[in-house]
Design a protein around this nucleic acid. Sequence first.
DNA 1: ATAAACTTTCAATAATTATTGAAAGTTTAA
DNA 2: TTAAACTTTCAATAATTATTGAAAGTTTAT
Lengths: 167, 167
Amino acid sequence: MEYQEAKDKFISTWGSLGTLWGINKAMAQIQALLFISTKALSMEDIMEELQISRGNTSMNLRQLMDWGIVTKELIPGERKEFFTTEKDVQELARIIAKERSRREIQPVVKVLKEVSSIKDDGTEKTKELIKQTKALHELTETADAMINKLVNQQQNWITKSLMKLIK
Amino acid sequence: MEYQEAKDKFISTWGSLGTLWGINKAMAQIQALLFISTKALSMEDIMEELQISRGNTSMNLRQLMDWGIVTKELIPGERKEFFTTEKDVQELARIIAKERSRREIQPVVKVLKEVSSIKDDGTEKTKELIKQTKALHELTETADAMINKLVNQQQNWITKSLMKLIK
DNA sequence: ATAAACTTTCAATAATTATTGAAAGTTTAA
DNA sequence: TTAAACTTTCAATAATTATTGAAAGTTTAT
């Protein structure tokens, strides 16, 4: 497999995986492109490479910046804006886990807590609703906490290794 | 909050969370409905409760059965088929994690492995592609393995507690 | 074998989501 | 201040995905 084929394959695969972390195809592809690029890219570059419109590129870059995954980079002497993505996979995982938790998991946890706290009127169906949503609430909260802890621990482990290397 | 309101809230919230575990709204809502139901439900019951068509109900029930989350239950003397979902949240988590891994994560891991294994032609861009996809490959594989281990460990922990309780 | 009771399938349609492109907005240089 | 170079916005449109409903299929009882 040659460079170009490998590159295209990576970008399209990563793009379709976007749903897994709750973002759309174009957004994931832009991130993928930046992730394997050796230098910061302009909007023009991205449009050209991915064959998408200016508007689409602009909106998706914005979203990636909102997530904190992509940053603008100003190149001296250049009028255009250039973009780069977080290159460290551990840090990337940390950001994604945190954002997904905040955007999607926390709101659900809140509803599960509310629903599982309704007053028990003694009927079987109410008891079942409370029991099941309570179990789901606990599981969701635990799983979310664990994942966040996990990605942060990895982070710490990496940081420690780096520290050792540096000093 | 009364029973009906709590129930509706749970079903619609769980439905919209469907995307998080890679299934569509109707599928998630059917599962949610069965999850808090005190008895097995017929297709008629589900259509009525969720206000969805027969075809939609049939197709989504099938998918839920493919996932291994819902099972048919034959009630003696009844011509209709009745459906129940896995009621244990831990087991549910285990099934979902396993299926998602098989359906979505493994294919991506495979591509990442392929792409990161292309021959290094010495150019900077090829080196970067190899380096970054290799890092992503390792991370994805590790994260996937960890999550599966995690849900299985929880499972074991629960199983052990139950065993103690029983004997 | 027939018909009633039920489920599945799938082409048509609806709903949702993503994308475009051009006008409006912004920044910089002269 | 003007104009060129660039980015953002957003209504229109395209693409994708979900849903319907009725015909075809299946199972069971007589």
